[in-house]
Every structure is written in structure tokens, then in C-alpha cells.
Design a protein around this nucleic acid. Structure first.
Lengths: 347, 347
DNA sequence: TTGAAAGCGCTAACAT
DNA sequence: ATGTTAGCGCTTTCAA
């Protein structure tokens, strides 16, 4: 059996309190006593029980991380990279990371997030995929623990960390128009997520800037999964619409779209240029390498933890918002449009 | 404030015990009573405090996952993929996943693993990267919680789940010899890990099988990181040794080696064929796509959780060992050796 | 079928 | 500088 504080106290002829203080670095304890306590602890391998401590202090030194909602999953590449960075950052600060069990019923991930938040198992929580109207927020506020979103929220009173989705998307699409593309398809994310919305706005703005009218026939909605990207791309192709470029709202969908294009006998970038969003590690290894809007995933991970810790320490001067740049990164998947798409032939 | 069991009891004019029983499905409680309890719980949103429950029952419904030791990190692609699958599996079974904080001192990750194991915060633990002589094992046994390794352990008394590293490696190298390669370099993993050892043995066996003598001049040791693979490859090139193929003990090192080769003006696979191990998702997206030994990462994740749960349920008929196949997956990074390397020119 | 009481191992007033 | 005393919110004997 693990030795307990009581065991320590008994052996040393001290009270539990003194032992507890000695171990937690409380100044009001004699040097000699502290030394005895520490040495005994080391020799019998005593280490405080975090569960008991958690019950007494209502702090667990644990950060909860919300698991993505279906159809995305824990295995989503972007999420996983984020998880890695956030986890490293959290541990560097002495926090553990808890990935909560989903709802028994399976379906309602949102509910699981709220339950985790109000479970007393964590001191703070990091959430992803904010929705435009996110029912979790009210519940989270009621739960009373600090939380931070990866991605902007509509509610101005919520802390978040995000890249500039709109600007990043606009920059990417502007690059395409700059090359002479005028038929640029858009594969959007789920309509209810703020990120989808912002990226779509960036797309529209860049078209507008270039004087290209928005054509909803070449816009299709995906769900941020590879299968979704594949389906959305097929949908546009099956509408019989020709495009010279595609802006996918995330990299995973772009990779799905790449397959769909190939299946239709179109090659990237000769026939169709392709751009993604996120900058997941795969992107640079695909064939051809995927041009994408690079999010600073490591910094987002670090910042999420940093902001959350600030919040957990009660440094509460209102909500904290942190925007990081997302920069377009050209790569082999984009090229100037083929002859068929150039309005004014150069020769 | 969260309502407590006491609050429930007060409102219902029942004792805490009865409420507790009603909620945990204890049969000896009147139907009517149970109904009242459940309905109140729902209406005031009562949910038991898992920390308090954990203290009382000594069970937390949480699985600990050991974080990789430096120089690998939480961000290692193979680990992250494994984490994703194991996490999904765990949650499906109602368990949460805890990634523990590293040691304050930073260095000693092993110690952190042991501490997590004996922290009373988890019911069982999944560990990775077993060492040939793994000091954690004794400590883990003493901690008294069930644990399972991803990868074979030397200690036959420990449960583990692993692919067949030796056979997988041998199959890959045999493929190379089958193509006519005779100068096949090997980038090994850390010498103290069982996986490195098994893969290296597979390499040696395949050479032997083909009647090719082992040449230690074209073997270099890496550390399973991209930088390590890069360095190991450079080392061999700088020794002035020529090779027509390279077997890297994992994919990340293979990608590092690919860079090193390119930097030396060698192209893959025209000048040098390259094979990795793991089958991380990147592999198929690299240019050229990386031939690799595919581990069934999803099954490994599922099996780890499954075995651990079996262990946690006390289903203890000795240690459980589960071996899964690892199959060589050819891809663009391998080709027959160039003329210079063919002993007997075909024409 | 229900209740009372004693912990689980720790922290945190409040003494002394 | 140390000890005493209550809890933290739950489960679990043991009684009734």
C-alpha cells in the first residue's frame, strides 16, 4: 500500500498538518523538521495522493481538452498536431492533460464537453471548433471553470486564441486571382462553425477585390473531413461546372479533393490548382505538395495553454483574445491557369 | 455551486446512502424511490463528483498514457496516431485518457511515468517504447496497477501489444535484396529499445538469407527522430561508403534520411532506394511515396486498450501478449539498383 | 428497503 | 513552529 500522510506523521511523531506543510513548502516550519520529513518521504517513497488533494483543494492541476465532434475525431491530423503542442506546453507548466470520455449514448459530444467542464476533474478547459451559436458556452460559464477556445467565438465575452482565418483565406485566393484564375471553386467547412464562416468570407472578399462575381455553382459545403472534401469536389464536378482552381477550407478536405480531381482525370496543378488551409505536416509531403494557409499550430497550442493558465490564476481582466497570423504558403499544387481558362490569350 | 449528494438527500428527505445507491443502480432500492432520485438529479443537474468518488472507491475510470521520452515528444507522428486510436477506443469504453505532466526537473520522463502509475489518478496505464532493460517495469509492478506496453518487453511477465518488428523488417529488406540490392544501409533506432533491436535483427536475417555479409560501415544509429535519421544518413555518406538502398528503422528517420540524400545530390529511388517502418500517414504522401513496413496502428491502439481493460477487470490469467502482423508496403521510394550496383550486368 | 457512521487522504482554518 | 479539528463529496459496512 501507498504510504499516507498519516503514516508519515506517525513515524515522525508529528501531526499530519506539519508533514503536509513541510512537503508543500510552507515557510512556517522548522528547517530541521522539514529535512526530517523530506528525507523520510524519499526513503519510504511517499508522494501525496492527488485525488485526495484534489478533493480537499478543489484543484487538480489538470487541463481538459475537448475531443472533436463527429464526423471529425481524435484522429484528425490538425487536432492531433494541436494536441501535441498544447500537451507539451501544459506539461512544461506542470499540468496534465485529460481527454474526456464521450457521452455513453455516443452521439452528443457537446454534452460530454460540458460534463467534463463541470466534473471537478479539471481546473480549466481548452475547446476547439467553436460554433457560431455555441450552446456549450452558456453551460461552460455556468460550470464556473476557466476555458479557452481554439478559434474565435461570436460571444465577445469568451477567451480565445485563433489565427486570422479571414485574412489567411483572402491571401490564398488573392494569390490565385493574381495568377489569372477566375473560376475558383470553394469547398466550405460546416456552416455552423466560425472558422468556416471566416474562411468563406475571406474567399468572397478576395474574389470581390479582383472583380470576380461570386458563383454559388462552384461553392460546395464540406465537413472538414477528407471524405467530405472528396464529396464536395465531386459535387461541383458533377454539376458540370469547370473550374481552374479550388480553395478548400482545410487541408484534409483539400487532400480529399485532390483524389476526386484525379478520379475525374484532372491533374493538379496542370488542370486545376488546389489550395488548402491549416498547414498540417502532410501538406508539404503530398504530391504535388499542397499550397496552404499555414496556421502557427505550435504557437496556437502554446498560446491556448498560456491564456488558460492566466485565466486559471484569476488574472481576470476580462476575456483574452489572441490573433495570430496565418500566411499563405505557395507550393506545387498551384500554377497559372491553363489556356482554356485565360480570358485574354496572351499570344 | 454544484449540488452534492447531501443536497439531493436533504431535498428528498432521504439519506445520502439511499441516494447514492439509487444513482449507482443498486438493486436494493425501491422503484419509486429510484424514480424520485433520478428525476431530481436530472432537474437540478446533479452529477456525482468523480474526484470524491475516486477517493472513496479508488477507481477513476481513467487510463494513463505515457508520454514519449526525449528526444521524441508528444508531437511524434507515430505516437500521435497511436494516441488517437487508443483514445477513441478508451472513450468508447467509458474511460478518459490522462497524459501526465513530466517531471519538474524536465529530464526524467521515466520517473514521471512511474509517478503517474502510482499516483492513484488512473486505473491502468499504457506505455510505449519499451527498453530492453526497462527499469520502469519493476516500479510499475510495485505500483500495483495494471499496465500494458506498446511493444514487446524482455520481461515475459509483462503484458504487451506489438507488431512483429523482426519479421516486418526482414520482409522489407528481403524485398530490397530481391530487387538486386546488395549494399543496403541500416539506420537503427536507439540501442536500448526492444523495437530497434528486433528491426535490426530482421535486417540482419534478411541479409543473411540473401547471402550478403553484414557490413557495419553502412549501419548507423539513429534515435527515431527526423534529425536523428538525417544525421545517421549523413554519417554513412561521409564515411565515403556507397549504398544502393537504405532501411530506416522508422518512417520519421526515413524522411530525415531522404533530405540528407537529396542534400548530397542523390535522388530517391534512382540513386538510392529508401524504406521506412511504421506506416505513418505521411509516408504515403511524401515525394516519392515512402515504401514502409505498415504497422496496424489502429488495431494496436484498440488492442492496447482492450488488453488493459481486461487486466483492469482482474481477468488475470497471467500476462497477455498480442502480436499483429506488420506488412511491407512497396512504394515509389524503392526501385531496382542502378547499373553501378548490379554485380552481374544483365546485358 | 433505508439510515447512521466511518472512512478514503488530504488541506486549511483556528488554536496554542 | 506545531497540533487540533473540520471538512472536501462520495461509498460502504453495519444496523435497523
Amino acid at each position: 500500500m501507498r504510504p499516507t500522510l498519516q503514516d508519515m506523521a506517525d513515524i515522525l511523531n508529528l501531526s499530519k498538518s506539519t508533514v503536509s506543510r513541510a512537503l508543500s513548502g510552507d515557510p512556517r516550519v522548522a528547517q530541521a523538521t522539514r529535512a526530517r520529513v523530506e528525507s523520510l518521504a524519499k526513503s519510504i517513497g511517499y508522494t501525496p495522493n492527488p485525488i485526495a488533494r484534489g478533493l480537499a483543494t478543489r484543484r487538480t492541476n489538470t487541463i481538459g481538452l475537448a475531443v472533436p465532434c463527429a464526423p471529425r475525431s481524435l484522429s484528425d491530423p490538425f487536432y492531433l498536431e494541436f494536441l501535441g503542442h498544447a500537451g507539451n506546453a501544459a506539461m512544461k507548466c506542470g499540468y496534465s492533460l485529460l481527454l474526456s470520455a464521450a457521452e455513453e449514448d455516443g452521439a452528443d459530444t457537446h454534452n460530454a464537453h460540458v460534463r467534463l467542464a463541470s466534473s471537478a476533474r479539471i481546473d480549466g478547459m481548452i475547446l476547439t471548433e467553436p460554433k457560431i451559436k455555441d450552446e456549450r458556452i452558456a453551460a461552460l460559464k455556468k460550470a464556473g471553470i476557466p476555458f479557452v477556445f481554439l478559434g474565435m467565438t461570436s460571444d465577445p465575452d469568451v477567451s480565445w486564441v485563433s489565427c486570422d482565418n479571414r485574412l489567411g483565406a483572402a491571401e490564398a485566393v488573392a494569390w490565385l486571382t493574381g495568377l489569372g484564375h477566375t473560376r475558383i471553386a470553394c469547398l466550405t467547412g460546416p456552416a455552423d462553425q466560425t472558422a468556416s464562416d471566416a474562411r468563406y468570407r475571406g474567399y468572397c472578399e478576395a474574389l470581390d477585390e479582383a472583380g470576380i462575381p461570386l458563383d454559388l455553382n462552384i461553392v460546395a459545403s464540406g465537413d472538414f473531413t477528407q471524405a467530405g472534401g472528396h464529396a464536395a469536389m465531386r459535387e461541383i464536378l458533377e454539376r458540370g461546372k469547370t473550374v481552374s482552381a479550388v480553395f478548400a477550407s482545410n487541408d484534409v478536405m483539400a487532400l480529399g479533393a485532390m483524389c476526386a480531381l484525379r478520379e475525374s482525370g484532372l491533374s493538379v496543378p496542370e488542370d486545376v490548382s488546389l489550395v488548402g488551409f491549416d498547414g498540417i505536416a502532410f501538406a508539404q509531403y503530398s504530391t504535388p505538395p499542397l499550397a496552404t494557409v499555414q496556421q502557427p499550430i505550435d504557437e496556437l497550442g502554446n498560446a491556448s495553454v498560456e491564456v488558460l493558465i492566466k485565466l486559471m490564476c484569476g488574472d481576470n481582466g476580462g476575456p483574452i483574445h489572441r490573433v495570430m497570423p496565418a500566411r499563405f504558403r505557395p507550393a506545387g499544387s498551384v500554377a497559372a491557369p491553363g489556356r482554356a481558362f485565360v480570358l485574354e490569350s496572351p499570344d
